[in-house]
Design a protein around this nucleic acid. Structure first.
Length: 805
DNA sequence: AGCACGCCGACT
DNA sequence: GTCGGCGTGCTC
C-alpha cells in the first residue's frame, strides 16, 4: 500500500504529494488525514497523508518511518478544505493544513550526532571523545557554536562512518499525564482478599473497599486523600498484584477552577422569536443558508445564538461559535459554559499552547459539542456540524494577515455548505460586503432594531474639538466631557474612556525645526515609551533612548506628541485627582490573565473610570456604566484605507453600545475634529442604514468592495530599484492580461514605504469578473520563484485585503 | 527548508 | 595542490 503525503516543507518545489510505501505492520492503520514521519532526502520530516492507494508511478519508494496519530487529525472534509484554501489564497497545501491544527502539533526537528553502531570511543580524536563523555547524543546546534576546527573533526568522522547523524522529529506539544490506580483483579477476588487481611492492615482494607465502591480508576493523589494514607500502602497493594498503576492522559483545563452558574434559556421577546425562527428552520431542515443577523447593541443576539445551538445539540449535532479575539472575555465564555457546561471547548490566544492543544483534543475526541473560539476555531474537526456562528461579523480579526490569508467567514460558508447547515453572521454594524449580499438575497437578512425591553439607545453628543481649542481649552478633555466625568464621579456611577491609539501615536517632534524622530530601518516615526524612557519602533522593535536635544537642530524643545493612554491617565490625575482609574492597553494587559483581572476589578466597582484602547470597545457589559467618552474619534479616519470610514462607524457604534445597558440611562460623548463627517454623524444618530447607503455610494465611485473585488500584491526588497522594477513588471503583466474594465494600479509605494530595511511597493487590482486571475497570479509567483526562494525578494498576494499597509 | 554536488578563487 | 565560498538542483 502506498501513502500520498504532503511534507512539512513550505516551498513551491515541494508543494505536491510524495509517495511512500506503507510498511505491512501499518497497512489498514494508516489513513488519510493522519500525520506521519517520512524520510525526505537525508532527513526526516513530518507529513500529512492525503490518500492511500495501491500503485505509484515512482520506482523506488521509501517506507514511511512513523505514524503519529491513532485517528486522523484532519477529516476528509478538512482535507478538501485545505486544497480549497490553497487555491483560494495561493498558499502551499502544507500551510493550509497547519493553519487548521493547534500550534502544539507542529513538528520540531532535531539533528544530533551519535557514535556509529559498534564504534568505540577510543579510536576517535581526543577532542571528539571529550564531547561524548557526558552525553550519548550531541545536538547539532551545540557543535555549530564550537570552533570550526572541532566541527571539521566531527564532519570527518561522520564521513568516515564512525559517527552517525540522526534526524529526529518531535512534537511541540506535550501531553500531561497523571497516575491513576485501579484494581487488577475482579471485585469478587478483591472482597475475598479483604477478608483475609490482617486486622492491623486497616489502610489496605480501606483502600480496597474504596475501589469496591467506586468501581473505577482513582487518581493517586485523590486516593491518598480519601484513605488518608501514604504512597507506601498503595505500593504494597500494587506489589501484591491487587492494584495496578497507570499513566493516563489528562487535559489541562484552563477553566478548571472556575464555576459557571448554570443558566436556563431566557424567554425570548417577540422580536427575538421572529429573528430566531428562520435559523431554527434551517437547522431543522438540514439546509445551508447564511443568515445576517443585524441587531443593535443590546438587542439580545447572544441569547439567539444560545438557543439556536441548543436546537443543534438536541439534534445530536455540533456547533462552532467564533468571537473576536478581544471579546473572549470571561463574560462571553461564561455565558456559553453556563448554558452548555462541559460540552463547551474554548479556543483563544489567552491560552497556552498546551491548553489550546488540550481543548482541541477534546473536540477531536468528540468529548465536546460546542466550540467557542477565535478565528482558527473555524477549523474545529467536527463531523456533524449543525450551525456555524460568527459574532461581530465585521471584526477585522477574522481575516488572517499571514499565509494562508483566509477570512473565517469564507471558511464558515464553505463548511456550512458541506454540512448543509446554517451560518449565522451577527453584528450591530455588518460589513458592507455582508449587508450588500443580504440586500441581494444571497444571505437572509434578519434585523433586530430595538434593544431588549425597548431600552433607549444612549444619547450621543458630538463635541467639536476645534471649537474647544478656539475657546481656549487646550486639554484633551472637552468641557462637556470633563463636567460629565465629575458628575458621574459624584453620583458614584462609572465611566469608560476610549482612546483609539491607531493613527495617533506618541511620536517625538522638535518644536523648533519640526524634525520627527524616525526609525533608521523603517519609514515610520518612533513611539515614546514612558516606562523606560525609550523610543521604540512598532514594526521592527528598534529602540533608542529619548534624545535630550533635537538630533537635527540641537534645540532643547523636543517633545513627544500625540496622546497615549499613559498621557491621558496623567492628565486625568491632574484634573480629576479623586477619580480611581484603571488603564487597559497593551502595556497593562500583556501578562496572562491581567486583562480579565482588570475587568473584574472594574466590575466590582474598584474604579470609577476605565480607560483603554481598542480592547475595551467590545463585549463589555457593566450595569453602572452611564458615560462613555471617545477622546479622538477621527484618529482612524485619515488612515490610508478605503475602510477607514466603515471602521470609524463600527467603532463608534460599538463603543456607544457600552453605555446604559441596564436600568440607568447611558450617555456618550464623542470628541472630534471632523464632527460633520458622515461616519461620526451617523454613528451618533445610531443610523446604520444611511451610513450603508452613503458608504456604498463612495465605494461605487472609487471602485472598491463590495462593487469590485480587490487583490493586493505586496513586493518588498532591500534594494529600492529592484522593488520598483519587480512591481512594475507585475503591474504591466496584469494590465496586459486582464480585461479593459479591470483596474490595475501601481507600482505605488506602500503606506509604510520601508520596514526592516526592505522597500515596499504594491500593485492593486480592482475587478468584477476575472475568472483567470488566480492563474495569472500563480504565473507571477512562478516567474519570481527563484528570486523569492533566495530570500531577497518577498512577494505576498492577498485576495481580498483588509490591511492596505 | 536542508542538503549534496560542483565549480571557481586564496591559502597551508 | 587543497579548503571553502555559495550557485544549482533534488527530495517519493
Amino acid at each position: 500500500m502506498i501513502a500520498k503525503v504532503i511534507v512539512d516543507v513550505a516551498v513551491k518545489q515541494t508543494d505536491r504529494m510524495f509517495d511512500y510505501q506503507i510498511p505491512v505492520k501499518w497497512e489498514g492503520i494508516v489513513e488519510p488525514g493522519m500525520r506521519v514521519i517520512v524520510p525526505f532526502g537525508p532527513r526526516k520530516v513530518q507529513g500529512f497523508v492525503m490518500d492511500v492507494v495501491q500503485e505509484s508511478s515512482v520506482k523506488k519508494l521509501k517506507p514511511l518511518v512513523d505514524v503519529l496519530d491513532i485517528a486522523p487529525v484532519l477529516t476528509a472534509e478538512l482535507l478538501k478544505l485545505g486544497f480549497w484554501l490553497k487555491d483560494e489564497t495561493l498558499c502551499f497545501a502544507i500551510s493550509a493544513f497547519q493553519a487548521m491544527l493547534p500550534a502544539a502539533m507542529k513538528a520540531r526537528y532535531k539533528k544530533e550526532i551519535t557514535l556509529a553502531h559498534q564504534q568505540t570511543l577510543d579510536r576517535l580524536p581526543e577532542e571528539v571523545q571529550k564531547r561524548f563523555q557526558y552525553q550519548e547524543r550531541i545536538p547539532w546546534e551545540e557543535l555549530e557554536q564550537t570552533d570550526s576546527k572541532l566541527l571539521r573533526q566531527f564532519q570527518q568522522q561522520i564521513k568516515a562512518g564512525a559517527l552517525d547523524v540522526i534526524y529526529r522529529v518531535e512534537e511541540k506539544g506535550t501531553k500531561k499525564t497523571k497516575r491513576v490506580i485501579f484494581p487488577n483483579v475482579s471485585n469478587k477476588e478483591l472482597s475475598s482478599y479483604i477478608e483475609t487481611l490482617d486486622n492491623r492492615a486497616l489502610k489496605q482494607r480501606q483502600i480496597l473497599s474504596l475501589f469496591l465502591e467506586s468501581n473505577q480508576p482513582i487518581i493517586v493523589q485523590d486516593l491518598l486523600e480519601m484513605a488518608d494514607t501514604t504512597r507506601s500502602t498503595v505500593k504494597t497493594l500494587v506489589n501484591k498484584g491487587l492494584l495496578k498503576e497507570e499513566n493516563v492522559e489528562i487535559y489541562r483545563d484552563p477553566y478548571e477552577n472556575k464555576t459557571f452558574a448554570k443558566t436556563e434559556p431566557l424567554s425570548l421577546t417577540t422580536k427575538q422569536e421572529t429573528a430566531i425562527s428562520p435559523i431554527l428552520a434551517a437547522v431543522e431542515e438540514n439546509r445551508y443558508e447564511t443568515v445576517l443577523l443585524h441587531g443593535v447593541t443590546g438587542s439580545g443576539k447572544t441569547e439567539i445564538y444560545l438557543q439556536s445551538i441548543q436546537k443543534v445539540l438536541n439534534k445530536g449535532k455540533e456547533a462552532i461559535v467564533l468571537v473576536p479575539e478581544i471579546s473572549l472575555t470571561p463574560q462571553m465564555v461564561s455565558r456559553f459554559k453556563g448554558r452548555f457546561g462541559s460540552q463547551v471547548a474554548v479556543l483563544h490566544s489567552g491560552l497556552s499552547k498546551g491548553e489550546k492543544y488540550d481543548e482541541w483534543r477534546k473536540i477531536h475526541r468528540k468529548q465536546v459539542k460546542v466550540v467557542v473560539g477565535a478565528r482558527s476555531a473555524i477549523f474545529a474537526p467536527f463531523e456533524k456540524l449543525g450551525i456555524l456562528i460568527i459574532d461581530e461579523e465585521h471584526e477585522s480579526s477574522y481575516k488572517q494577515e499571514e499565509n494562508p490569508r483566509y477570512h473565517a467567514r469564507d471558511v464558515a460558508i464553505y463548511r456550512g455548505k458541506y454540512h448543509n447547515c446554517p451560518v449565522v453572521l451577527g453584528s450591530a454594524t455588518p460589513t458592507l460586503e455582508s449587508y450588500a449580499r443580504a440586500q441581494k438575497n444571497i444571505y437572509r437578512l434578519i434585523e433586530l432594531q430595538s434593544r431588549i425591553n425597548d431600552q433607549a439607545m444612549p444619547e450621543v453628543n458630538v463635541i467639536d474639538m476645534r471649537e474647544e481649542l478656539r475657546s481656549g481649552n487646550r486639554s484633551m478633555f472637552s468641557n462637556s466631557l470633563f463636567e460629565k466625568l465629575s458628575d458621574r464621579l459624584q453620583k458614584k456611577q462609572q465611566s469608560v474612556l476610549f482612546l483609539n491609539r491607531r493613527g495617533y501615536s506618541t511620536f517625538v517632534i522638535c518644536r523648533d525645526c519640526g524634525h520627527v524622530v524616525e526609525c533608521p530601518h523603517c519609514d515610520i516615526s518612533l513611539t515614546y515609551h514612558k516606562n523606560n524612557h525609550q523610543l521604540k519602533c512598532h514594526y521592527c522593535g528598534y529602540q533608542e533612548p529619548m534624545p535630550r536635544v533635537c538630533p537635527s537642530c540641537e534645540s532643547e524643545y523636543i517633545r513627544f506628541f500625540g496622546t497615549g493612554t499613559q498621557k491621558v491617565e496623567e492628565e486625568l490625575a491632574k484634573v480629576l485627582p479623586e477619580a480611581r482609574v484603571i488603564r487597559m492597553d497593551v502595556d497593562t494587559t500583556s501578562r496572562k490573565g491581567s486583562h480579565e483581572r482588570l475587568l473584574s476589578q472594574f466590575g466590582e466597582k474598584k474604579a470609577d473610570i476605565l480607560l483603554g484602547t481598542q480592547m475595551i470597545a467590545k463585549g463589555l457589559d457593566f450595569p453602572d456604566v452611564t458615560l462613555v467618552g471617545v477622546l479622538a474619534s477621527d484618529a482612524m479616519l485619515n488612515l490610508p484605507d478605503f475602510r477607514a470610514s466603515e471602521r470609524t462607524f463600527q467603532l463608534l457604534t460599538q463603543v456607544s453600545g457600552r453605555a446604559g445597558r441596564h436600568e440607568l440611562k447611558g450617555e456618550v460623548i464623542i470628541q472630534s475634529y471632523n464632527p460633520e463627517h458622515y461616519s461620526i454623524e451617523l454613528a451618533s444618530a445610531h443610523n446604520y442604514k444611511d451610513f450603508y447607503k452613503r458608504e456604498m455610494h463612495t465605494r461605487k465611485q472609487h471602485g472598491y468592495p463590495p462593487y469590485y473585488f480587490l487583490t493586493l500584491i505586496n513586493v518588498s526588497h532591500p534594494d529600492l530599484m529592484k522593488a520598483v522594477s519587480v512591481t512594475e513588471k507585475i503591474t504591466s503583466y496584469l494590465k496586459h492580461k486582464l480585461k479593459d474594465h479591470s483596474i490595475v494600479l501601481g507600482p505605488v509605494a506602500s503606506a509604510i514605504p520601508r520596514i526592516k530595511d526592505r522597500y515596499r511597493y504594491q500593485c492593486m487590482v480592482k475587478y468584477r469578473n476575472e475568472p483567470n486571475l488566480t492563474g495569472y497570479l500563480r504565473e507571477i509567483l512562478q516567474h519570481f520563484e527563484k528570486e523569492t526562494s533566495q530570500g531577497k525578494l518577498l512577494l505576498s498576494i492577498d485576495r481580498n485585503p483588509h490591511m492596505m499597509m
